[in-house]
């Protein structure tokens, strides 16, 4: 891992236009990913994680509007690319999704989808070469019997196998940055452990950087080098995973950590964060977490706390940490 940023996101602000208003899904989000690093984006449903991921892989739906911001990948701004640069960049950022079954077209065999992708990205046309390449990658994701899988339809494969197939397809175009959007949420715990293990191995093998999106802080802590906590479309805290677990600063992060049921304790009551996220069409004036925070003051209601580096390499956006060490 080097400290060379492969991706810089600056002030990213994204709206969705719907008939009855404008959903302000992501506001002023800035972060970086270094080469070879696994950065986890954590937050609950609706916090804008997927939207950030889609923006970076430039696959936002049509009703999304990027209001502001820059996404700099290897020194080039992805949002202002020349047409001819686009295809070369595309290969280097790839995204995998939560629902493997919805990503693959049910009408085509795994092999056909694979060939399409390889043909397009690697400009190969020799069927034998393509097949060879595909089998190589199916093997790399530890799928048993790649030949059979190459000739299967998606519905003939289990969820865990499908997710591996998608990872294989994604890796075949030789990406530098992989965005994984909750790739294990639909899987049961044993498969989840398998897929995470696989991703970590592949990261080393292919020299990937990974932006891993999840709502599960436990998973983030296990596989992430650094964790970014999002709430309601904004970043509230960012630190290395050890630091974040040892010393969570933001009340939301603290709440999230307390919610995780621990197997060695018999609870009489589980901790939870009461309340729910605000309407994203009307984000609050002040702190995003104010409605659910037990420590909120008047100031929190009126004034939005900025994301500051409160401790070394540990950023937080909360008025509790104002009179700060620099």
């Amino acid at each position: 891992m080097t400290d060379q940023p492969i991706l810089q996101v600056e002030n990213l602000t994204i709206d969705y236009v719907v008939l009855d208003g404008i959903i302000k899904a992501v506001r002023n989000v800035s972060f970086t990913i270094n080469e070879g690093e696994v950065v986890c984006l954590v937050g609950e449903s609706g916090s804008g994680k997927t939207t950030v991921g889609l923006a970076i892989s430039r696959a936002l739906p049509e009703n999304a509007i990027i209001r502001e911001g820059r996404i700099i990948f290897k020194g080039r701004d992805l949002l202002n690319l020349e047409i001819r640069d686009k295809s070369t960049i595309e290969d280097k950022v790839m995204m995998i999704f939560q629902d493997p079954a919805a990503t693959l077209n049910p009408l085509f065999k795994v092999g056909e989808i694979f060939s399409d992708v390889i043909k397009h990205h690697l400009k190969l046309s020799d069927q034998l070469k393509i097949r060879e390449k595909a089998l190589e990658f199916l093997k790399a994701v530890e799928l048993p019997d790649p030949e059979r899988i190459f000739n299967s339809y998606p519905h003939e494969l289990s969820g865990g196998m499908l997710q591996r197939v998608i990872i294989a397809i994604t890796l075949s175009v030789n990406p530098k940055l992989l965005i994984a959007d909750e790739p294990t949420t639909m899987l049961d715990v044993t498969l989840q452990a398998q897929i995470l293990d696989l991703l970590i191995n592949l990261k080393k093998k292919f020299g990937l950087s990974i932006l891993f999106i999840t709502h599960n802080l436990s998973i983030a802590a296990e596989i992430g080098d650094r964790i970014i906590v999002m709430y309601g479309g904004e970043i509230v805290e960012e630190a290395s995973s050890e630091e974040l677990l040892k010393n969570p600063l933001h009340p939301y992060t603290k709440g999230l950590l307390e919610c995780i049921p621990k197997t060695h304790i018999k609870y009489s009551k589980l901790k939870s964060i009461p309340g729910m996220i605000f309407d994203l069409r009307n984000p609050p004036l002040g702190c995003v977490f104010v409605d659910r925070c037990t420590e909120a003051t008047d100031l929190c209601r009126k004034d939005k706390p900025r994301l500051i580096e409160f401790l070394k390499n540990h950023k937080v956006a909360c008025h509790l940490y104002r009179g700060s060490t620099k």
């Binding site: 196998m161 715990v189 044993t190 452990a193 398998q194 436990s218 983030a220 296990e222 950590l257």
Partner: peptide, 23 residues
């Protein structure tokens, strides 16, 4: 035991658990 080991635990680093192989 493997089911227990599959539960993600924030205070444990990856690689310290037994992973059930295969389908």
């Amino acid at each position: 035991r493997i089911l227990f080991s599959s539960i993600p635990d924030p205070y444990r680093k990856f690689g310290e658990r037994v992973i059930l192989r295969g389908e």
